[in-house]
């Protein structure tokens, strides 16, 4: 394990993770809004926002899948040291981190079962850019107009068809994140 892997965690875990969770909660509760987070300094190419989410939500009980562009020794070590999350194949993952292309095909990820739809994966998708310009969104958490830049519309529309099963998604870019629960209906473009 490299010394770099040992740094870049939260300095004050209970406070920083609390603030990060509030942003993650608001983001998931209000699709189409973008939230700023801070406190993690993960190895490149992982974004600060992805690092914050992983430090806040992952631990030894949450198997994590790394997409190819993230499956680097530095990142593996960083995640192992800071969270202890076991690194696993897509099918067994509770969380997944990667660029959209890495995570394809997304039908490999758990969408829960009909009786336990919560037993599903949360994808953390690294975006080259994140903005509120994009397809229209509707559903819980959304009043009036909301939209978000998307890696791909079809996969999210397909995911919505499984509701209440489905995966949930965070889109991250630099220090910013947006949430996309399975309940969101993405306009067809």
């Amino acid at each position: 394990m490299t010394p770099e892997a040992l740094s870049g965690g939260f300095r004050d875990a209970s406070i920083q993770s609390a603030r990060a969770f509030r942003a993650a909660l608001e983001a998931m509760a209000r699709p189409g809004t973008i939230w700023q987070v801070e406190g993690a300094a993960p190895p490149a190419p992982m974004s600060v926002a992805s690092g914050v989410l992983i430090l806040t939500l992952c631990d030894g009980t949450t198997p994590l899948h790394l997409g190819a562009s993230m499956d680097l020794p530095m990142i593996r070590d960083w995640i192992t040291f800071h969270t202890g999350a076991p690194l696993v194949a897509a099918e067994a993952a509770r969380f997944a981190l990667g660029h959209w292309q890495d995570l394809m095909p997304v039908n490999r990820f758990a969408i829960g079962t009909p009786d336990y739809p919560d037993r599903s994966a949360t994808l953390i998708v690294e975006m080259p850019d994140l903005s509120t310009a994009g397809p229209q969104l509707s559903g819980p958490g959304i009043k009036g107009n909301a939209s978000l830049s998307f890696p791909e519309v079809a996969a999210f529309r397909a995911n919505r068809r499984h509701f209440p099963q489905g995966f949930d998604t965070y889109l991250t870019c630099d220090t910013r994140l947006a949430g996309l629960p399975r309940s969101t209906i993405v306009e067809d473009v």
Binding site: S14, S17, A18, F21, A24, L25, M28, A29, T56, L57, C58, D59, T61, T62, P117, D118, S120, T122, G141, P164, G166, D168, P181, R182, S183
Partner: peptide, 16 residues
């Protein structure tokens, strides 16, 4: 660890 477990449950609750 307990807070993380509860937070994950809250997020799934929000999603469903």
């Amino acid at each position: 660890q307990t807070k993380r477990m509860i937070r994950r449950a809250i997020l799934k609750g929000i999603a469903i």
